[in-house]
Computed example of a mutant assay.
Amino acid sequence: MEENNAKKGDLMKAVVHAEQLGIDGLTYRDIEETQPQAGEVRVRLKGAGLNHRDLFVLTRHKETDPPLIIGSDGVGIVDAVGEGVTNVKVGDEVIINPGLGWREKTEAPPAGFEIVGLPFHGTFAEKIVIPAENAVPKPKFLTWEEASVLSLAALTGYRALFTRGKVEKGMKVLIPGIGSGVATFLLQFAKAAGATVYVTSRSEEKCKKALEMGADKAFNSNEDWTKALGGEKMDLIIESVGAATFNKSLDQLRLGGTMVTFGASAGDVVELDLRRFFYGQFNLLGTTMGSGEEYREMLAFIEKHEIRPVLDQTYQLSEFKEAFERMEKAEQLGKIGFVIE
């Protein structure tokens, strides 16, 4: 894909970032449609999902860069195909794999791996052009709204839990910060895999909801974690909060246990007691997103177990500011979506 490659043509509505950093640089406006080239398809979007990544993009995409349609998650109907495309056809209902250029399951993404929504135009628009391999059949049991918020968070959680964390039936798994979209997928995935799952949140309401979703124990992040867990140690911890909880999480890991980390929304620099770490024989693994192979595995897993995203609220694209503000304040439980008509 060529960055922001557009031909003169029809206009569409989109949420565009330009001219200044942050939410103030976003506008809902007309922008020219992009035409599919060889090996690409165009999708008329029915919905899109908001991710923490979209907040980060607002600082990574600079004022001097060309205008950018943001957004990584989306679902819709193919309305045009480029030369040589055989895997999808016009009229197909598809969900978008936002990972570009990472096909097979490998230890790390290959050079050149990118994610839809930066540096290439994203899903907060009426239409999007993507490589044909990234247009995957939409799971039939999911609604448009559910499918629209699935991809990035579910893929991130799937790789963290299965590929990197190697979760198994009977394991004790701790998931700090249950409010995020990835965390709600982690809870559902781990329970479906037969694990015992513990979660934390500063919100009593989110703890209660997690218990309703199947968590075996939910407790306040401000509590003494060791007391809250009754001295139980975890086989696997999926840490996405960052510096605010990293060492508290590490304290709950059994000797030889594994921590997988993929987020740093509450600080990205931690102090680590190396002596305690190597005496504990701990495993610390990083991860982010996942491959096309894992994406297909994840879709098969959610279809087998009929796992649905936890939907927080949905908005019209023109209401993007309200959606971003809700995420910035961490008020959501699960995923925030956009309905695109």
Rank of each mutant, 00 (worst) to 15 (best):
V81G: 11
F113C: 11
E83R: 14
A132L: 09
S148A: 11
A108L: 06
A153Q: 08
T59D: 02
N97G: 06
I95M: 03
I95S: 01
T86A: 13
A135K: 03
A147S: 02
T106K: 03
A135Q: 05
W144K: 00
I115W: 12
P119H: 12
G76N: 07
D65P: 01
T59Q: 01
F124C: 08
P139A: 08
P98R: 08
L152R: 03
A80H: 14
E104V: 07
G112K: 13
P98S: 11
T64N: 07
G74K: 04
A154V: 07
S151D: 05
P131Q: 11
D73I: 01
G112W: 12
A111H: 15
F120T: 13
V75Q: 01
E114I: 14
V136T: 11
W102P: 08
P119M: 13
E146M: 00
E107C: 00
A135M: 03
K62M: 03
G74W: 03
P109D: 13
A125W: 09
T106L: 04
I115P: 07
N134W: 04
V90L: 13
K105R: 12
T143L: 00
K105T: 08
R103G: 05
P110A: 14
A80R: 14
R60I: 02
A132G: 09
D65N: 09
S151M: 04
P66H: 07
G74I: 06
G84L: 14
I115T: 15
E114K: 15
N97E: 12
R60S: 01
V75L: 01
P67I: 04
I115N: 10
E104L: 06
A80K: 15
K62E: 06
E104I: 05
R60N: 02
P98D: 11
W102F: 09
I130N: 05
P109S: 12
A135L: 04
I130T: 09
K127V: 13
L155T: 10
G112Y: 13
E93N: 11
I70D: 06
A147E: 02
I96L: 12
V94C: 05
E93T: 12
K62D: 03
G122Q: 08
S151C: 04
V149P: 00
F113N: 10
A154S: 10
